[in-house]
Every structure is written in structure tokens, then in C-alpha cells.
Amino acid sequence: MFMLATALAIVRLRNLFASAMLTGIYSLLAASLFVVMDAVDVAFTEAAVGAGISMVLFLGTLALVKGKDRASRPKDVLPLIVAIATGAVLLYGTLDMPSYGDPNAPIHHHVADLYLDEGGSETGVPNIVTVVLASYRGYDTLGETTVVFTAAIAVMLLLGRARRRPRKNGKKIDAIDPEAPV
């Protein structure tokens, strides 16, 4: 599978620029996987956010820091054992899950039936995904929008201040401003 190869390459590579590029490729592959699974809306988001915007942000960060990762060769095997053990437990857990696309799986019969049967006739909107997102799950989407809002505010607080201060007196000062409210 391409995705596996890309993920391995990201881990192996020390050049962060190439890693960022590969992350974008990974997102694009994930998006095509979602298309294969008929989840067009999710694929759309993945392609736009994962392959588009987040890669630009990665590259923006890379412009600020050094482009090479320090070559670290940790000797201990404990993290490897922990990772393998956790992975094995998770895999063991999936054995009990219903197979992919099983129409009798419980998750497809909680409220999904109602959404699929009534969604079109109750709202008159053909795209069920939009109906669920914006109407039935309106609270969730409002929360998500607020999360995006909060994240953007946080980043602007962290980075925006450091940029503006040095301009005033012409010399570089620390990002931490003693007068700033905590």
C-alpha cells in the first residue's frame, strides 16, 4: 500500500522539507482512499486541509526553523516494545468489531436510520451529509467552528505579539512580554 510506504518514508527521512512534502502526499492518498469508500465530503476536506493548507503551514514553519532533523539514534528498545504491545492490543480489539460496511453493525442503526430515511423529506436538502452536519448535529458544528475560532485566536496571541513588538523599538526582544496579561 502506498500509504504505508509514505508513512515509513516520513519516519525515516531526516530532511524535514521532504517529510513535509510526503505528509501532503499521504493526505492526498488518504483523500483518494475516502473517495473509494464513497465518503466524498470527507475526501474533499482531507484534500483541501491535509494536502493543501497544512502543508503550506508546515513549509511556513520550516522557513523559520532549520530544515534538518538532528540525527538521533535512540538505543533503548522499551518504546518499541510499548508501541508494538499497544498496537497488538488495538488490533486484538478490532477483532470484535463488525466488518467494514456491514449493514447490521450497531453504529448504523442508532440514529443513522432516522437521518437517512427522514433527512431528505424533513429538510428538503438532498445532501444528507450537509443535513446531518448543519441541522441534526448543529450543536456539534457550532462547537467545531468555535474550536477553529479559538485555535486561530491562540496562534495569533502566541505569534502575532512577537512580531509586532520588535518593530516599535527596532531591536529584537524576547517574545515574552512582562506587561502582557496572562
Binding site: I53, G60, V155, M156, A162, R163, P166, R167, K172
Partner: peptide, 14 residues
């Protein structure tokens, strides 16, 4: 997204 990008891009000015 726009403000994140602009804030990021404005960093290297200092």
C-alpha cells in the same frame, strides 16, 4: 486559515 498563514509568513521579518 488566512490569518494563521499571514501570522506564520510574517515571522521571518524580525
Amino acid at each position: 486559515m488566512i490569518s494563521l498563514f499571514l501570522v506564520f509568513a510574517g515571522q521571518d521579518k524580525d
